[in-house]
Amino acid sequence: MTWLIALLGLVATGLGGWLAVDPASSPASHFPPLNEHLIHDSAAVFLAFGLGLLLAARVPDYRFPILALAALWNGLHTVSHIVDVNSAATRAQGVTAIVELAALTVALAVLAWRSAPDRSARRA
């Protein structure tokens, strides 16, 4: 599980860096018109979650809250793409984004669930 959390953290951090440095070439540019400020805001979110996931890979006690928040944010991000699917440059790009985001949301939610503190230990 540690390597998968670290990989997700690296991908999110890399995507955040890409969005920050070259917003016009990013996947976010598939939803015209190009709004560099909004893409930079997204970069900040991806960098924050990416760094959080990298921390969670190293500190097991942080895994559940960071993964749960990442899953929640990504799920809401998926909903926004469902709502805006017809705003994508092409329908195929819009649908592809939804499928990718939904799969990532499920992966994050499963990782969060698997890292949840043992409920029986809290009752004792």
Rank of each mutant, 00 (worst) to 15 (best):
T2L: 02
T2R: 08
T2D: 12
L4K: 11
L4H: 02
L7P: 04
L7K: 02
L7R: 03
L8T: 12
G9E: 07
L10C: 11
L10V: 13
V11H: 00
T13I: 09
T13K: 02
G14M: 03
G14W: 01
G14K: 03
L15C: 05
L15R: 06
L15V: 15
G16I: 10
W18S: 05
W18F: 10
W18P: 01
W18I: 14
L19R: 00
L19C: 05
A20L: 10
V21I: 15
D22S: 15
D22W: 15
P23I: 11
P27F: 06
A28L: 08
S29Q: 06
H30S: 13
F31R: 09
F31C: 09
P32I: 07
P33W: 03
N35W: 02
I39S: 06
H40C: 05
H40T: 11
H40F: 04
D41L: 03
S42P: 00
A44K: 00
A44E: 01
V45R: 07
F46I: 02
A48R: 01
F49R: 04
G50W: 08
G50Q: 09
G50S: 08
L51C: 12
G52F: 09
L53C: 10
L54N: 08
L54I: 07
L55D: 03
A56L: 03
R58V: 13
V59M: 14
V59I: 13
P60S: 11
D61S: 14
D61G: 14
D61M: 12
Y62R: 12
Y62I: 13
Y62D: 07
P65W: 04
P65G: 03
A68V: 11
L69G: 06
L69W: 15
L69P: 01
A70G: 10
A71T: 15
L72W: 04
L72E: 02
W73A: 15
N74G: 02
G75P: 03
G75D: 08
G75Y: 06
G75W: 06
G75V: 10
L76V: 13
H77F: 10
T78I: 08
T78L: 11
V79F: 09
V79L: 15
S80W: 10
S80I: 15
H81K: 08
H81P: 14
I82W: 00
I82G: 09
V83C: 11
D84V: 12
D84S: 15
V85H: 06
A88Q: 06
A88R: 05
A89V: 14
A89M: 04
A89Q: 12
T90W: 02
A92D: 13
A92T: 15
A92H: 06
A92E: 13
A92M: 09
Q93V: 14
G94C: 10
T96H: 01
T96L: 10
T96P: 00
A97S: 13
A97R: 13
I98M: 12
I98H: 00
V99M: 06
E100G: 02
E100T: 04
L101S: 07
A102R: 04
A103K: 02
A103G: 10
L104W: 00
T105A: 14
T105F: 13
V106Y: 03
A107H: 02
A109V: 12
A109D: 07
V110G: 03
V110I: 15
L111C: 09
A112C: 05
A112L: 09
R114Y: 02
R114S: 09
S115Q: 07
S115D: 10
P117C: 10
P117G: 14
R119V: 14
R119K: 09
R122D: 08
R122S: 14
R122F: 07
R123K: 03
